[in-house]
Amino acid sequence: MSVLPFKSGGYRFVEGVFQYSAGVAAEPGYRIVRVQFRAPVPLEEGFRRIERIVTAAGRPLTAFCACELRSPAPFTEAGFTAFNKIYVGTLERWNIFDGKTNPIARSNVCPAIAPPPEPSFHAFSYTEAATDAEPSFVIAGSGEAPEGRGNYRDHIVSLGDVSPAGIREKARFVLGEMERRMGALGFGWKDTTAAQLYTIHDIHPFLADEIVRRGAARAGLTWHYNRPPVVDLEYEMDCRGVSVERVV
Rank of each mutant, 00 (worst) to 15 (best):
Q36R: 15
V41N: 01
P42E: 01
L43T: 05
L43R: 07
L43V: 02
G46T: 04
G46Q: 06
G46R: 04
F47I: 00
F47Y: 06
R48T: 03
R49W: 00
I50K: 01
I50D: 03
I53E: 03
V54L: 03
V54K: 00
T55H: 12
A57S: 13
R59M: 14
R59G: 00
P60E: 09
A63D: 08
F64S: 04
C65I: 08
C65P: 04
C65F: 10
E68R: 12
E68P: 01
E68L: 10
S71Q: 05
S71V: 10
S71K: 01
A73M: 07
T76E: 11
T76P: 08
E77Y: 15
A78Y: 11
G79P: 10
F80E: 07
T81I: 15
A82G: 11
A82L: 14
I86K: 15
Y87C: 00
V88I: 15
G89P: 10
T90V: 13
T90D: 07
T90A: 13
L91G: 09
R93Y: 13
N95P: 04
F97H: 14
F97E: 05
G99S: 15
K100Q: 08
K100N: 14
T101L: 14
T101A: 15
N102P: 10
N102G: 10
I104V: 15
I104P: 12
A105K: 13
A105V: 05
R106C: 10
V109F: 14
C110F: 08
A112F: 11
I113C: 07
A114N: 14
A114I: 02
P115I: 07
P116I: 05
P117G: 14
P117M: 07
P117L: 08
E118T: 11
S120N: 01
F121Y: 11
F121H: 02
H122N: 12
A123G: 01
F124D: 02
S125Y: 06
S125V: 03
S125E: 08
S125M: 04
T127G: 01
T127E: 02
T127M: 02
T131F: 02
T131C: 00
D132Q: 12
A133W: 07
E134C: 04
P135Q: 04
I139Y: 05
A140F: 06
G141T: 03
S142I: 11
G143E: 11
G143Y: 00
E144Q: 11
E144D: 10
E144T: 05
A145L: 00
A145N: 02
A145I: 01
G148Q: 02
R149F: 14
Y152K: 06
H155V: 00
I156W: 04
L159F: 15
G160L: 07
G160S: 00
G160A: 09
D161A: 10
V162L: 09
P164D: 09
P164R: 06
P164L: 09
P164I: 06
